[in-house]
Design a binder for these strands. Structure first.
Lengths: 157, 157
DNA sequence: TCTTCGCACCAAATAATATTTTGTGGTTCA
DNA sequence: TGAACCACAAAATATTATTTGGTGCGAAGA
């Protein structure tokens, strides 16, 4: 039996705050939501245990670590059958530079997000690892020129 | 003068660990990288101050908070001039459901990532907020059917 | 080569923070 | 009405972060 969780206004506020800043102390968080530390912590733990909060991550400045190029890649497979899809996703999973892989509607089948040092490294990566995945029919790269928004805060309904 | 930062193997390991799990304690982190807590903390602080670590975020389970639909949207503007681009990015910035906005090469001009409760909410959002941005010429929605990879860990070169 | 400086580190003390415990009031349901 | 259950607050305790002082090593200059 899955425990049905309903979020009240305070829970939603907690989620909003922790998405924006996971490093806030429990005391500060308590203060912001207008409760004392004990029940605040209880709520956070409950959100974690229930799986509503999945994980916590540090976000890096990609340029500063030497990752200057990000792209989206639209991929079509040779066939849409389960075997090919599994072969593809498995191959993708082994490539660290592919940080996202989504199955989508529309003309293509998949959209990937890929990170690389520069265009040269990107080209090398594509040629050596991505292009020669057997089941891939066709690919189109969209290079990100600049990013205007990259929010880590989902709008909780 | 920007302080040129060079990362050694230990720094890269720290970044890798904190990207995967920002909630690790300093003592645990120290243990994993084979240093004592003091210099470990020093390194982390240095990475934060230098801006290599940008921020820390909680990641949610979108389905569990009632956000069942994610899409990519390819957008073409009526003209590629600076004025139109600024008008567009500003309009986009006010829509919480648009969590990413990138300027890209290729036939379209922008790619957006949008989150909504369900298809009905998505349609409403598009009709009421996105479609009628004045400078938008053409849009194509790609609905995410499933996500096979969504890594928060960048491969540091 | 010798000396000195500065850096990265460790161990241990201290400060801050998380977490647990205990008790209270309000709400629901039999 | 009253029993059981929550959600909460205050305060005690445990855990963790942070600071301090001291050591050794490597690089730069005499």
């Amino acid at each position: 039996m899955k425990p049905k969780i309903k979020l009240d206004k305070i829970d939603r506020r907690i989620l909003e705050i922790l998405q924006a800043n996971a490093k806030i102390t429990n005391a500060q968080l308590a203060n912001e939501i207008g409760l004392s530390p004990a029940p605040t912590l209880e709520r956070v733990k409950k959100l974690e245990v229930s799986g509503i909060i999945k994980s916590y991550h540090a976000t890096l400045n990609n340029e500063k670590v030497g990752l200057g190029v990000s792209t989206f890649v639209m991929v079509s497979l040779k066939g849409h059958n389960k075997t090919n899809i599994e072969a593809f996703t498995q191959a993708i999973n082994e490539i660290d530079e592919v940080i996202e892989c989504h199955h989508i509607t529309g003309s293509g089948d998949f959209i990937l997000k890929i990170i690389a040092q520069d265009i040269a490294a990107y080209q090398k990566l594509m040629l050596e690892k991505v292009t020669n995945i057997e089941v891939v029919d066709n690919m189109q790269s969209l290079v990100i020129l600049s990013t205007f928004k990259d929010s880590k805060v989902m709008p909780i309904p």
